[in-house]
Amino acid sequence: MEKPVMVDVRDVTMEFNMSSYKVDSLKEYFIRLMKHELFFKSFLALDGVSFQVRKGDVLGLIGLNGSGKSTMLKIISGIMKPTKGSATAYGTISPLIELGAGFDADLTARENIYLNGSILGYSRQFMDSVFDEIVDFSELHNFLDIPIKNFSSGMQARLGFAIATVVKPDILIVDEVLAVGDFKFQEKCEKRIRELMSNETTVIIVSHSIEQIESLCNKVLWLNKGKVVKYGDALAICDEYKNA
């Protein structure tokens, strides 16, 4: 029996209006309007992409810079709306926020745990119940009441990862975050992701490390200039990608 579909991407096209100069001030807008320089260049970041991710799959997105990987992740997590097509996610999504994005440097680690949790949409009761687990995983027991600005980037990354993965989400989205921290922390992250996988969490990973993709993923989506090159079994496609 096939497992249920968790992410259903149908014919997604994302078009950006890339003006040759980015106009983001009134002054510039009027100057260009007067000079008749307000033309827009459209740019297809994604072009008719369709695929499905099933429960328990670990999908890796690969492709060169600018192939549309991050745009795809943003569309799946609801941050961007596609110009055409639809992307539906069935279940709770937890994005692994890049280092520091959800933190306030002036607040202590304790306060940041609650702030970050609420950014991800969790309630106070839930955060209370998982607080100890987050602290244990990030190993920051002695630093809880210190403002985050005094933390090293590795400590911040540990905290961020601990908060994002404490939830057992239905879908976990990981965008290049695993490339931070020392090798021990990376190992720990990989272990956590494997744990989540055994819990039937669906994981979507973007990484430039093809080794990481090979070791973690069972499915791979290979994008090039916004189009799907190949979608399917991880090992075979990774081999092809390395030789391409």
Binding site: I79, I119, L120
Partner: peptide, 9 residues
């Protein structure tokens, strides 16, 4: 912006 780019809020 750094948050808006990463999470749906």
């Amino acid at each position: 912006s750094s948050l808006i780019k990463k999470v749906y809020i």
